[in-house]
């Protein structure tokens, strides 16, 4: 007996391809928004901007300490009860952006905090303005320090898309589950699932390690 039915696998490929595109579409939109959000939140927290830093603090703790599934349920099933209806796909992007934003904020902040105060002092003593110092001295180093954790976050967020089935998005995980329910070809469906996640995530890992090597210019004088 054959272990895997290859004709079955081939016939499922288009469905998995669509699901992969959906995962990527939501994944990248969500992650791009998360990076922007995280960056702003990190700056707010690091430079202790009054009031805003408290709001950001609450946001980060709220979203880092609840599962994405719960957040999606709230956004998709909870908000319509108060009249705010968001379709499934924007809901997925929003959920991922909010969760990712909280993680990214902490990642960037740890990068900012890892830059020695002497860097700022030196930049100021060279006649740079505070703004210039942040832009040209602190941020490049902080970003470079946070690259490994940043890449880990991106991979984590892409994997988190597997809970989107809860809000009826046909992502990879739901496609696999749905096909199993329809045609009962379990092993084929699960094998395809693993393969397609690897297709998405291996390049991200590889890109991450290249990025990490190229951007390693922080920590001068250590």
């Amino acid at each position: 007996m054959e272990l895997l039915r290859w004709d079955v696998i081939v016939s499922y490929l288009p469905l998995y391809r669509d699901a992969m595109f959906l995962t990527l579409r939501i994944g990248w939109a969500g992650i791009a928004a998360a990076i922007g959000l995280g960056f702003v939140c990190a700056l707010i927290r690091h430079y202790r901007i009054p009031v805003l830093q408290n709001i950001v603090g609450i946001y980060i703790e709220l979203f880092r300490n609840t599962p994405l599934l719960v957040q999606l349920f709230f956004l998709y099933f909870g908000l319509p009860k108060i009249g705010l209806e968001i379709p499934a796909e924007p809901c997925g992007v929003l959920g991922l952006a909010l969760l990712g934003g909280a993680y990214m904020a902490e990642t960037f902040r740890s990068g900012l905090e890892a830059v020695e105060p002497i860097q700022m002092e030196s930049a100021l003593s060279l006649g740079m303005s505070r703004q210039q110092a942040v832009l040209h001295v602190i941020l490049p180093q902080a970003v470079s320090i946070s690259v490994p954790a940043f890449v880990a976050n991106v991979i984590f967020l892409l994997k988190e898309t597997s809970v989107f089935s809860a809000i009826s998005l046909m992502d990879l995980m739901f496609t696999a589950k749905d096909l199993i329910g329809l045609y009962y070809k379990t092993l084929e469906c699960l094998t395809l699932l693993v393969v397609f996640y690897l297709i998405i995530l291996l390049p991200v890992s590889a890109l991450g390690s290249i990025l990490e090597r190229r951007l390693r210019y922080a920590g001068f004088g250590d």
Partner: peptide, 23 residues
């Protein structure tokens, strides 16, 4: 609902109908 006879029936007999699937 994913995995129910309703899903199978509509997928087979009315493929033009857009299904929103929940698990």
């Amino acid at each position: 609902i994913s995995g129910t006879t309703a899903e199978t029936y509509l997928t087979k007999n009315n493929p033009e109908i857009k299904l929103q699937k929940f698990d």
